[in-house]
Structure formats: structure tokens, C-alpha cells
């Protein structure tokens, strides 16, 4: 038996201290610890540093254009040519679209994940297959979802609209949300579910009244991650949600989205408008951060009811 502290048994099963505990051995272990700790800190700094760099770039380039009017006004004609206005259409459009898509994805994910973990048996082939499907769907590029959504729309006869965008983004978010939820629901301890069953609860009741309540923080986190991905994706909405200067008032109207607004503002020949693109990116970042913080607060509040 080998332990880190170097105590070993010799052939007769007796414990003995052998040459393992030479000073160089201690030094080597200590050196390893120090080196790897340094590497780890470096890695973490690299990751956080990249984030800081990207955010700093956005803010630095977008600051001249970041005005309150940008957030609260819709674009006047010629906005993309340098005239006044704001991106309220894109902000609200994105919120509606991502919100609706996340809701759709949630309505689909939650039952599926509950089924996979509570109803399906340990070695269920269906569960294996569906989890595999989710992994595959995860890897589908968002532009393929956009293309598929476009085909679907043409097939149904829908025009570019909020609804079409919602459906496409819901398809995009589904694997993300499901996987994140699955990870959390899997971890519910068997003791808990067994206790519920032993008290005579049906599996449905256990699912809804026990498991969901227990994993609510995890579910909220999954919803947040999916929402973040959905609101920031351009390729899937490029051909499905359309674009307009107005705030959509019905599901069948085209909707502007923030990533597309950024994309279009970046593509104009006017440098002031390109600055606005960075400002819009800053708005999107702040939006995601705000939603992240809100949901963390919500998670903490609901964590009170979980059993640790």
C-alpha cells in the first residue's frame, strides 16, 4: 500500500518507513505543488484576463457612443447611416425572443429530464439514446439551426417573425438547457427519492413535489445559461426573425435582435455607427450580467428549500 506520506508495508505486511522519505522526495512533491499551483493561477488569470480584455475593448470602443438615448429610443430612419435613435427595438425584441424561446425550451426540457431521471430505469436504452441525441444536438452549429428553421418556416408558410425566431432559438437552447438540468437532477440523492416512494408517492408526485423543489436552483441556473446563449446568437436568427425598426407587438411580426443589430451596425461604412455597435455589445453584456445576477439571487432564495 502506497500512501503519499511514504508509509509502506513490506512483504510481511508490516508497516515500515522506507527510503521513500528522502529529503529530495519531499522537495520534489513540494516543487510539484508549487509549480502546478502557479500554473493553475496562471490559467485562471488567463481566462479571467481574456474576459476582462474583451469587455474592456467593447467598453473602450463603445463608450463614445453609449448614451441613454441608445437604450430608450428606437432607431429613426437612417439610424444605420448615422442619424439618431437607439436600439430599443433590438433590446426588447431580443428579450421577447430569448424569453419566449427559453420558455418553450423549458416546457420541453423539464418533462424530458424528469422522465429520463425518474421514470426511465437505470440502464434504459431510451435514456441512453436521448442523452446521446442531446449531445449531438449540442454540437449542431447555430447556423444549421438557422437553416433548418428557415426550411421549417418555408414549409409551414410562416414569414420571418418573432415566432419563427423563437422556435429556432428554442431548438438551439434545448440541448443546452437539457444537459445542464440533467446534470443537476442526476445528482438528487437516492435517499430522497426513496423516502418519497416509501411514503407512497407516485413517481409523478415525487418528480413534481420533491425533485423539482430540490433541484430548483440548478434548474434556474440551466435556464439562465440557455437564455444567455439564446440571446447572444446571431446565426440562428439571421434568416428567421427578420429585422425591423419597430418593437414587435405580435408574434407574427419581424423582430430586431441585439446580435443582429450589432452585426448590422458593424457592417455600415460609417465609423460612428460602428462605435454604436460596440455600445450595443456593451448593452448586451450588461443585460446578460444583470440577468445572471438576478437569477443568482433567485437561486439563493430557492436554495432555502433544498435539503442538503
Amino acid at each position: 500500500m502506497r500512501t503519499p506520506s511514504g508509509i509502506r508495508t513490506n512483504g510481511n505486511g508490516r508497516l515500515s518507513l522506507l527510503g521513500r522519505q528522502s529529503p529530495s522526495w519531499w522537495r520534489r512533491r513540494k516543487a510539484q505543488e508549487v509549480i502546478f499551483k502557479a500554473l493553475m493561477i496562471f490559467s485562471l488569470l488567463l481566462v479571467v484576463g481574456c474576459l476582462a480584455l474583451i469587455v474592456a475593448t467593447i467598453v473602450w470602443k463603445g463608450l463614445p457612443a453609449l448614451k441613454l438615448s441608445m437604450i430608450f429610443q428606437t432607431p429613426r430612419g437612417g439610424y444605420y447611416l448615422g442619424k439618431e435613435g437607439g436600439i430599443l427595438n433590438a433590446i426588447l425584441g431580443s428579450l421577447y425572443l430569448a424569453g419566449g424561446a427559453t420558455l418553450l425550451a423549458l416546457l420541453l426540457s423539464l418533462p424530458i429530464v424528469l422522465y429520463l431521471n425518474i421514470y426511465a430505469g437505470r440502464n434504459s436504452r431510451t435514456a441512453e439514446f436521448i442523452r446521446f441525441s442531446f449531445d449531438v444536438l449540442w454540437g449542431v452549429p447555430s447556423i444549421v439551426y438557422g437553416a433548418f428553421g428557415f426550411l421549417l418556416m418555408a414549409f409551414i408558410g410562416l414569414r420571418t417573425s418573432l415566432l419563427a425566431g423563437m422556435i429556432t432559438v428554442a431548438m438551439l437552447e434545448l440541448p443546452i438547457m437539457s444537459r445542464a438540468m440533467d446534470e443537476v437532477v442526476r445528482l438528487v440523492s437516492r435517499d430522497l427519492t426513496d423516502a418519497a416512494y416509501s411514503l407512497g408517492a407516485t413517481r409523478f408526485e415525487t418528480a413534481v413535489k420533491v425533485v423539482v423543489r430540490q433541484t430548483l436552483p440548478g434548474i434556474l441556473t440551466a435556464v439562465l445559461i440557455a437564455f444567455g446563449r439564446g440571446i447572444g446568437d446571431a446565426a440562428s436568427v439571421l434568416f428567421t426573425a427578420g429585422f425591423t425598426d419597430r418593437v414587435p407587438t405580435s408574434l407574427l411580426q419581424p423582430a430586431a435582435t441585439l446580435p443582429l443589430a450589432i452585426f448590422f451596425q458593424l457592417g455600415t461604412p460609417f465609423p460612428e455607427v460602428r462605435e454604436r455597435a460596440y455600445a450595443s455589445a456593451a448593452v448586451l453584456t450588461i443585460l446578460i450580467l444583470a440577468i445572471s445576477l438576478i437569477s443568482r439571487a433567485a437561486v439563493r432564495r430557492y436554495s432555502r428549500h433544498t435539503i442538503r
Binding site: G242, F243, D245
Partner: peptide, 13 residues
């Protein structure tokens, strides 16, 4: 309602 996106998108749409 004017939207950019490239000539290809224009034809496709």
C-alpha cells in the same frame, strides 16, 4: 422595413 444582410440574403428572401 429595410434590412441589410448581403446580396445573397436579398435574393434568398
Amino acid at each position: 422595413d429595410v434590412q441589410a444582410g448581403g446580396a445573397g440574403k436579398g435574393i434568398a428572401d
